[in-house]
């Protein structure tokens, strides 16, 4: 499966990239495990996540073609 991953704000700067493609030999993976696969460590505290542009949780399952986003707590308004 292939998923598109986006990073925003402070996380985007720390990662040094805004987007990446992840190719995995599985049919699905949780948002939290995808982070571990990409970065080799546990997701940081207070991480917010979205799948296909909707709010999600670390145990939300991701499938082929999905769009995943990782970002810090929001500060709009």
């Amino acid at each position: 499966m292939t998923v598109t991953v986006h990073y925003f704000a402070r996380l985007r700067e720390e990662m040094g990239r805004a987007d990446e493609q992840a190719d995995l030999p599985t049919e699905s993976i949780s948002v939290g495990d995808l982070w571990r696969h990409l970065h080799g460590d546990a997701p940081p505290e207070r991480l917010m996540v979205a799948v296909n542009q909707e709010q999600a949780a670390l145990d939300t399952l991701v499938r082929d073609g999905d769009e995943v986003a990782y970002f810090p707590p929001v500060t709009g308004g």
């Binding site: 500060t75 709009g76 308004g77």
Partner: peptide
């Protein structure tokens, strides 16, 4: 609507300070 927007809508503020440095706003 305002309170939910501030806690749920994906916006992030980065401030530029008088000394020229930048910082991400970490919380409302």
């Amino acid at each position: 609507i305002l309170e939910r927007l501030k806690h749920e809508a994906p916006f992030w503020k980065r401030e530029r300070l008088a000394d020229g440095s930048d910082r991400w706003v970490e919380k409302n």
